[in-house]
Structure formats: C-alpha cells, structure tokens
Design a protein around this nucleic acid. Structure first.
Lengths: 229, 229
DNA sequence: TATATAAGTGTAAAAAAAACACTTTACAAT
DNA sequence: ATTGTAAAGTGTTTTTTTTACACTTATATA
C-alpha cells in the first residue's frame, strides 16, 4: 500500500468559532470578546482560534473557549462550517462554528479576568467577518432544538422554578407561552421533579423549586419529542 | 491594519465527501464508487476530493461530484465536518460531508462511463475510513428532514403517482404508512396537483399522475411543516 | 388589616392524528 | 363471455393532542 501524501491538494487554515448562549433572569444572552489582534483588533467577535494538527474539532473548540474565557467543561455541539473564500481578509480560512448553552450565574466566576462579556441577543454589537451570520444560524438551530428535545439542563441552575423554565423557552422561541399549557406539557414528559422547597426571590408567595430527573431528561434528549407549543 | 498572515497556525487538508441518495421503484439507494487510488484502492467509497484554495465548500462538492460521476446541477446540503485525527491513514485530513437527493432514472445517462453504482441502503458494502458513519448521519438527517419539510421534488420524476410518493416516504422513514391517512395529510399541504393522466405501469386500473406545485412546495420548504405520521 | 404581586390550578372546545374496509377498474386467464 | 386478480381510490369514527381561558391562594409590605 503506497502511503504517499496527497501531495497535490491545498492545505488550508481551519478556525473554530464558539457561540455561547447563556441564560439568567435578564433572559437569553450571548458571550462575546474584544478581539485582541489584527485585523479588526478591538472589535467584538466570537471566541475563535485555529485547529491544530493533532486535535479534532471538538477538542479545539474546548481548548479555544477555555483559553479565551476560562470556561471549562462546556459541552459544545458542531453547528456548520463556513467557507466563503474571502470570509477572512488576511488569509483563506474556513471556520467551523460550535455552539453551547450555559447557566450564566453558574459560570460567572470563570469569566473574571477576561474581556468576554454577555450581550442580550437584541443588543449585541456588530461582529467581525461572518460571525453575525454564524450567530443567526445558531439561533435558528437552538429554536429547532428547543422544539424537539428538552432544553434547560445546561442553562438553568440546579434548582429552578417552573417560571424560570418557561421564561427560558419564551426567550428561545421568542414568543409568549400560556402558563397552564406550558406546565401541562412539560409535566407530560416526566422530566421534572418538584422539590419541597420554595424560591421566594421573585414572589411573596414563593414558587416551588424543581430539578430535572436526569435519567428521564437524557432519555428524552435521545428519543426527542414534539414540543408543539 | 497589519495584514500579516496567521503564521503560527497549522494548515490542514480538507476533503469533501458526497452522499447521494437516489430513489426509483427499487426504493431508496445510495451512490458509491470504487476508489481508484491508494490507500484502499478498489474499495467502495463515497465520492470525495479535496477543497481547493480558491473555492468554497459548496462549489467543491459540486465539482467533485461532477468529476467523479458526471452528475450536474445537483443541489447538495452540508451535513457535518468529520475531524478525527486518524480518520485518514495517509495524512491528517478533515472531511466535510455533503448530501443530496436525486431521481435515479432522471440521472441515469450522466452516470454511464463511471465506476459509480447504486446500492440499496441495506445492501451497501463496507466503506472506507469513516464513510459509513457519514452515511448513517446523513440518513438520520434525511429522516428528520422528511418530517419537517416536503421531500420528493428532487427524488421523483416530474410526474409521479401518489403511491410512489408514499413509497418514498416509507423508504426514508423506514416504516409502513396508511394509504388514506397519507393522502389526506399530503393533500392538506396543497403542494400537489393531480393531472388528468394516468400511469398504467404498475396497475391495470392505472393511477393518477401528480406534479408538485413548485411555488407552494417551496413555500412549505421555507416555513416547514409537521409531518407527524 | 388592606393591598399588591406572583403562583398555582382544571376544564371545555377545537383540531389533528389514527384506525379502519369496501368498491372500482381493467387486464389476463380460462 | 365470464371470472379472477391486482392495485387504485375513497370517508368516517374514535382517540389524542392542542388551545383557550379566569379565578383562588399565599404572603410580604404599606
């Protein structure tokens, strides 16, 4: 077997860009950093870096995100590979976009000492290159995902109220949902456990706290469901 | 603005592999070729080649598919980028998988003089590298797609019978559907036009021929639907 | 103790999906 | 000419899912 190299083919730079969605009581947000090298230094950008010879894309995404933001153990999913010839003015570069969902409060500590900042989706600044297009595609994917699989485990604190979960869905789907119908639907999936504790931050009466039944939650992630709401 | 190159980053080979699904009266099939260079020469493989410096991925996919099979004007969609470090034994190579759906009979002429062959999904040979994994992922995507958007325009002849369309859905979803429920559902989308012609190939009585109302079809592709069946 | 605020709860109507079987047509075989 | 055969065509009922909708409860605070 002749193991010559594929000598005629072009080698190309491969970037990985990370779209991190976060959620807190202010709603759905996106994490951006100030780019610290040319071109477009000082402009807002996704967290990005280059794939190395000896790592796969998932690994690169984790390394790059951690390097730029301090965020660890974030599960990211591959979104799409962007390949317009002139997408980067410096040099031909493809970029594989990854996205993830996290609970802002939970990861706040990791983000100190970085230039990373959270932006509400509608107040995000203009982004470099084709990063805005990446974000758009990620939002579309996130919406589709929210309708076909449970969402929230990564975005909410370990204990949360029904209203927080509903707000999360409302932010992602970008529409108001009916309180009772939402509860009925969510309960029909059997992925929630109601605790005997209440959260009194947001109301005088106090709202029951819930956790996810991780086993059932994961089952539903695999089998998918139809959150037609 | 300093337009230095990104000099420290690794450059890597980028392949594009094409998964072509075809449909005819034998059901859903996949197009494969005998690989004509080492390694794995003579083994079955997806249609693949390398991305060039001056083209984007969509263009590369079209070029590669046409070069290897003669197929022209096939609309392919990006599926996923595969990046395991040792996925190609010769040299570090990433591969971006693309997939498309075509009507076998319609493109038969283009495929003469190539080593490309159609295989039923369950009778496909072992494929090189991670190509089987690519095909699996493409099948999963195809199923999801069939449930959320109309499918068939690219896979069926211009005129087709209701039963052909149903068989197409049955092949993709890999389950039997009820004839009457299928017709009612499809008709509710308003994407079909019944012609006054009949097709008598498959039955003595003859079956009405249909075409797609392309405008309504495209609308439904954009807005999506819920083919819960 | 009155008020204000968010939480919690159930039912009825409408829409969608699923289950289900007989008739029609025309060719082929006798 | 009659009968058999093979696929096409056609509606209704039941069940499930979705939607719309409004009042009561708990408690902190004025």
């Amino acid at each position: 077997m002749a193991l010559n190299k594929y000598s005629n083919a072009d080698k190309i730079l491969l970037a990985v860009d990370c779209i991190i969605f976060g959620f807190d009581k202010g709603g759905l947000k996106i994490l951006l950093i100030k780019r610290d090298f040319e071109p477009e230094q000082g402009k807002w950008s996704l967290m990005g870096g280059f794939l190395k010879e000896d790592e796969n894309l998932d690994e690169a995404a984790i390394r790059i995100l951690q390097h730029l933001t301090g965020l660890r153990t974030i599960y990211m999913e591959q979104l799409y590979t962007f390949s317009k010839v002139d997408r980067d003015p410096v040099e031909r570069t493809l970029s594989v976009a990854y996205y993830a969902l996290i609970d802002i409060a939970m990861h706040d500590q990791e983000l100190v000492n970085t230039s990373a900042q959270w932006f509400s989706l509608d107040k995000a600044p203009h982004l470099i290159f084709d990063h805005s297009q990446m974000v758009e595609k990620a939002i579309a994917r996130l919406k589709r995902r929210a309708l076909s699989k449970p969402i929230g485990f990564e975005l909410l604190p370990p204990k949360f109220t029904m209203r927080q979960l509903q707000k999360l869905y409302e932010s992602i789907l970008d529409k108001k949902l009916d309180k009772r119908n939402f509860i009925n639907k969510i309960n029909s999936f059997g992925i929630l456990v109601r605790l005997d504790e209440k959260d009194t931050n947001a109301s005088k009466k106090g709202a029951y706290l819930y956790t996810f039944d991780k086993v059932k939650y994961d089952e539903k992630v695999l089998e998918g469901f139809n959150f037609k709401i």
